Simulated assay, not measured.
Amino acid sequence: MRVIVNRDVCQHHGQCVFSSPDVFRLDEDGELVYDAAPDDALRDDVEDAADVCPLQAITVQD
């Protein structure tokens, strides 16, 4: 699985952090940091994070 975040669209609302904290987090400056190639066992959480993103900035690829 590959996670792609469109940095031009993302506004760091952090909803993905709540859905998938093992993959997404906000750093001390409020910028999104994420694992671009997380373990496939986290797929459900990552897909939930993509779904709840208010700007639909997250894409999940196989």
Rank of each mutant, 00 (worst) to 15 (best):
L55I: 11
L42W: 00
P21H: 05
D40I: 10
V23N: 05
D48Q: 09
P21S: 06
V60A: 03
D27E: 09
V60R: 02
V3N: 02
A36N: 09
S20K: 00
F18E: 14
D8L: 13
V3P: 00
A36K: 11
H13T: 03
D51Q: 13
A36E: 15
P54Q: 12
Q56R: 12
D40W: 07
V23M: 09
A49V: 02
L26A: 01
C10G: 07
T59C: 05
G30A: 09
L55W: 13
V33Q: 15
H12E: 11
D39C: 02
I4K: 10
R43D: 15
C53W: 08
Q61A: 12
D39I: 01
A50V: 09
I4E: 14
A41Q: 07
V9G: 05
V5M: 13
D27L: 06
V23R: 03
D27K: 05
C10E: 10
Q11T: 13
V9L: 14
E28I: 05
V46S: 00
R7F: 06
V17K: 02
H12L: 03
S19F: 06
E28M: 05
Q61H: 06
D29I: 04
A37F: 07
R25V: 02
V33D: 12
D22T: 00
V33W: 08
P54G: 07
D62S: 11
H12R: 06
D45W: 03
D51P: 03
Q61P: 00
D29A: 14
P38N: 07
D40V: 11
D45G: 03
R25K: 15
L26V: 01
Y34G: 01
R2K: 14
V5D: 13
V46P: 00
D62F: 07
A49E: 02
L26I: 03
M1H: 14
D62R: 12
Q11I: 13
D27M: 07
D22Q: 03
H13D: 08
R43V: 13
Y34K: 03
R25H: 12
V9K: 14
P54V: 06
E31D: 10
D39L: 04
R2V: 08
V33Y: 06
D40P: 07
A41L: 04
C10M: 10
D48Y: 01
H12T: 09
S19Y: 06
P38A: 04
I4G: 02
E28N: 09
A57Q: 10
N6S: 13
P21G: 06
F18N: 09
A37M: 04
L55A: 11
N6I: 05
A41V: 09
G30F: 07
A36L: 05
V23F: 09
D45I: 01
R25I: 02
N6G: 07
H13L: 08
E31F: 10
S19A: 15
C10D: 09
R25F: 08
D39K: 03
A57E: 11
